[in-house]
Write a protein that binds this DNA or RNA. Structure first.
Lengths: 190, 190
DNA sequence: CGCTCTTTCTTAGATATCTAAGATAAGACT
DNA sequence: AGTCTTATCTTAGATATCTAAGAAAGAGCG
């Protein structure tokens, strides 16, 4: 037991070789962490968190969505959107308004301040991406995108069918799309 | 404004085409979510969370590490390890002990119960991985692993040099390493 | 019309994670 | 020996995210 603390080198070696499929999840997770950190570091200087960035980017493309629609596009649950939007409202990046036609819905609009962030923030994200894929052949990036997409699809499919035999508490609502239609969104994934 | 809620199809199409580098981060993040969810769904039936799984797996390979060493191998900060280990101790999966030689350190040992989980949990993880990469050529998986690793390395390198010129509030504490040496560990990445 | 179901937002509470800063033990150096 | 520094664990507080359940508006139907 208790081997010597592995050096960074050995850790990297560990990743490179061996461990065929297992740890794919951890590798992907680590990549996410690295990417999010890199972006967050830069966004932080403009008082924008990674969570806000996600929603800002959607709003820059299509302003005036409801919170529900925002959730779908961002691929997160409503409470996540709710608290992010509330925080963004406090920062003066968005406003929320009800409309006459359906007073349940709350539409989210960018303020001029929120809109102006676009010019500053987008280049930061582009820079992070450029750094991330430095010295990686773009054909490999393309392939990686495809693989990641396949993984997402495979797991999504599995989750749906798995629900049939294994009501794992967290997806239950989504299934019975027949009569009841809880979870109307087709999404959940970005 | 307010476009119709995008179907899963349109969302997938969105991912497939266009958006060259931007959104790579989100794609990776979504893949992480899918993988973690799939694993968590299954681990949950054995009262193990994904966070605990991370540490259990390390301990199965090398029991009796300190919290610091666990943190390094898991690639997370100490407080994360701390609370996970404390929770795992409550669940009776590990125990924590001081040793005579250096009473700062706290060694974490699996209990028999924690050790027994291995046989049950590892197959679950293997199944998730098998599902995730279904119908993906293994050469592509290999390539994806390399790309992800490059991304992690590129960003790690950037973070180091970036610290020098850009004290971005979240890295500030780490800088003044001159006299104080906060953040002593060489790691931070898994 | 009035009851019930659905949709949407909100609240509550949990987990995982981070940074910053506190506490304690060891080591080092004058 | 006494003080300063380093290492390790701990606490505190923040963010992002989730599930579960509450509240209010709308819709459908007998």
């Amino acid at each position: 037991m208790s081997r010597p603390p592995p050096s960074t080198q050995s850790i990297l070696r560990h990743w490179r070789e061996a461990v065929p499929n297992d740890r794919l999840a951890h590798l992907v997770k680590d990549a996410t962490r690295a990417l999010v950190r890199a972006l967050q570091m830069r966004l932080g200087e403009h008082a924008v968190s990674f969570g806000h960035w996600t929603f800002l980017r959607i709003l820059w493309e299509s302003d005036g969505l409801t919170q529900r629609e925002l959730s779908e596009q961002a691929g997160v649950m409503e409470p996540t959107t709710f608290s992010a939007v509330r925080a963004m409202e406090r920062l003066g990046h968005v406003v929320r308004r009800r409309r006459g036609d359906d007073r349940k819905k709350i539409f989210v609009f960018l303020t001029p301040k929120g809109r102006r962030l676009r010019k500053k923030l987008v280049p930061l994200a582009e820079r992070v991406n450029r750094i991330a894929v430095r010295r990686v052949r773009s054909a490999d990036i393309t392939r990686t995108r495809k693989v990641l997409l396949s993984i997402i699809e495979n797991l999504a499919r599995d989750e749906q069918t798995a629900d049939m035999r294994m009501p794992s508490t967290r997806e239950l609502g989504r299934l019975n799309g027949s009569g009841r239609k809880r979870r109307p969104q087709g999404s959940r994934r970005r």
